[in-house]
Design a protein around this nucleic acid. Structure first.
Lengths: 342, 342
DNA sequence: GATTTTACCGAAAACGTTTTCGATTTCGTA
DNA sequence: TACGAAATCGAAAACGTTTTCGGTAAAATC
């Protein structure tokens, strides 16, 4: 009934606990014979080291924490998958918590993870997070932490991101290249860096092409829902009949807009061209299929863990690490919601 | 630098470690005065109990494991969210692993969790899992485990499910009630219980209504993708021109089919009515919106954890638990992919 | 045969907590 | 004053592992 321990093996073999431990861990100072004996008995008794004891002794749990704003979200769940798959390969398990886009909750979850003494932390910031003391405190304690996607530029730690500004620039430029003259932007919330950068990329593309930047063409939404896309599509039709292109912060909203335009008989891309962001799998399914920016979530998760792993290793060897910014490549996926560029 | 321990507090206060521990944990045999002193110092020193030591001593980690076939999936990510949110309320953290619908991986992940000595396990079986020794072994060891969604009826443990057969029956009956005379079924893989039950519900509805059950109208798919929906829609049009209703195993595939029918100019619901399964949020977004069965993922996650929690408590009090089958209510969500029932 | 080297083993401390149980002090009451 | 009860405290064991360090026995060297 009780799980078998080193002591059990030692006693039945008439040797010391020390030797058993060393035999199992491949220490050189134990004879071939006893090593074989120990390993065999451990096998037949189905011995599994008590993780709690190992944790206490080694001061590490081979467990990392992950804080994410929202689990039910295609992009984030892809990231989770990337993290979990990579962590598993290196023998790490991952504890998931959700901040629900709340700063307060984010702090609380971080605290939980620290109390559990996870070896390291992966985090994508909540939209509302503007104060970073909870993060810098952790860094000060020497606990490895890496941010991804929704990051804070000001905080000194490793990050894995995409170049939102460049990607948004590319998206907007594509609208311009395919003949759009008046381009609106469905922007995300005011705060998170992504949202800001995508907006800036949009704006810069306009300016670089000598097109007027008109603030009234920027629609801000807090909730990234399908319905918001529908609503903004209606607004555009009502308020700006001359708009012939829209760069949307995220695919889901873009698809909502497409649905509404379809319903109203507005021709895409002839009358209005649309570019989304994320390359959600539904964007190739909708009619017309959505031109969008591919945002590699799975890859981001993998890279984020890999970086954290490096820092965990470094910490073990008492080496210091210089924070690293990993920028993943994005690409424009041309589909049928924009015209052909000649 | 080093985290503060009970010893640190004891030494600066000139009392024993025992008393400090008792003061913090509210034992009655410590005076108001020292209790206050200890608590205050603990506060100012920001003392956090070493989770590793607590784990070792108490033989529990306040951590549970969760194994899921696929993280990037709307239904499952809803379940995850339900589990995590509920677990957090009770002070539990959750470790997520993914079986990738592989039996071998499932076994391996279960092993990992057992080695980590999680307090309990939540699992939704992989499609390929037909042998359950890895599960019963765990039950035999007295570790609480509860299954959800994709379960094994034969295994004696608590489960939280929906009545797939009944829901499928309702869905099919709705097609019949709205005038469909020849109803096809896009069925999931052969193995998992859900897939079987939904098929059986479909079949029973036909028989109960004196309609012919025609095996050639049942299309089996292994991958639940949008593309499969498109493909089967084409097949239906090619092979069975008289089909006027389809009950589809899952919304994503149904939406693929709708897209293809739209493309081909087949009128929904006039020429072909469609009912899906899951109530994925996109099913209200597509045109025509999809009539479907609402499958409460978040709720399922919550209930699954609650049941596990009960069993964890029971185990602590050395009480035995009788496995419980929790059946969640589903409902038919009528939308525009089926006709009005008069 | 004496000495050094090598191979092998185990005692013991340590990680930080929880909890039992016995010891001491304080208090109330006769 | 004396005695029992109540209040308060601490020593010590225990959880199971890892690792240092010293010790003994065997093998190698001269």
């Amino acid at each position: 009934m009780k799980p078998v321990t080193l002591k059990d093996i030692a006693e039945t073999l008439g040797i010391s606990i020390t030797t058993v431990s060393k035999a199992l861990k491949g220490y050189p100072d134990v004879s071939k014979k006893t090593r074989a004996l120990v390993k065999e008995l451990a096998q037949t008794l189905n011995y599994k080291p008590n993780a709690f004891a190992v944790n206490l002794r080694t001061e590490e749990s081979k467990t990392i924490g992950l804080i994410i704003p929202e689990i039910v979200h295609h992009f984030f769940s892809s990231v989770i998958k990337g993290i979990v798959s990579q962590a598993e390969k290196k023998g790490y398990l991952v504890i998931i918590l959700q901040s629900n886009e709340s700063f307060e909750l984010e702090k609380k979850q971080l605290d939980l993870l620290m109390n559990k003494r996870v070896d390291g932390i992966l985090i994508s910031l909540a939209n509302g997070t503007a104060d970073f003391k909870h993060i810098t405190d952790i860094i000060a304690q020497g606990k490895p932490i890496v941010m991804f996607d929704k990051i804070a530029k000001i905080v000194k730690c490793s990050k894995v991101i995409i170049d939102d500004r460049k990607a948004a620039y590319t998206a907007t430029q594509h609208l311009i290249d395919t003949g759009c003259k008046r381009i609106a932007h469905f922007r995300g919330p005011l705060l998170p860096q992504n949202s800001i950068d995508r907006f800036l990329g949009y704006k810069k593309a306009l300016v670089d092409n000598n097109m007027e930047y008109d603030p009234s063409l920027v629609y801000i939404f807090d909730d990234m829902t399908f319905e918001v896309g529908e609503e903004f599509a209606r607004k555009i039709l009502a308020e700006h009949t001359n708009v012939d292109g829209i760069f949307v912060n995220t695919d889901l909203v873009a698809i909502g807009a497409i649905t509404e335009f379809n319903r109203q008989g507005v021709k895409i891309p002839e009358e209005i061209s649309i570019v989304g962001f994320s390359n959600w799998f539904m964007s190739s399914a909708i009619t017309p299929s959505l031109t969008t920016i591919n945002q590699p979530g799975f890859e981001m998760g993998k890279k984020a863990f890999k970086q954290l792993y490096k820092e965990l290793k470094a910490k073990k060897n008492k080496k210091s690490v210089v924070p690293k910014i990993l920028e993943l490549e994005t690409s424009l996926v041309k589909r049928n919601s924009t015209r052909n560029s000649e």
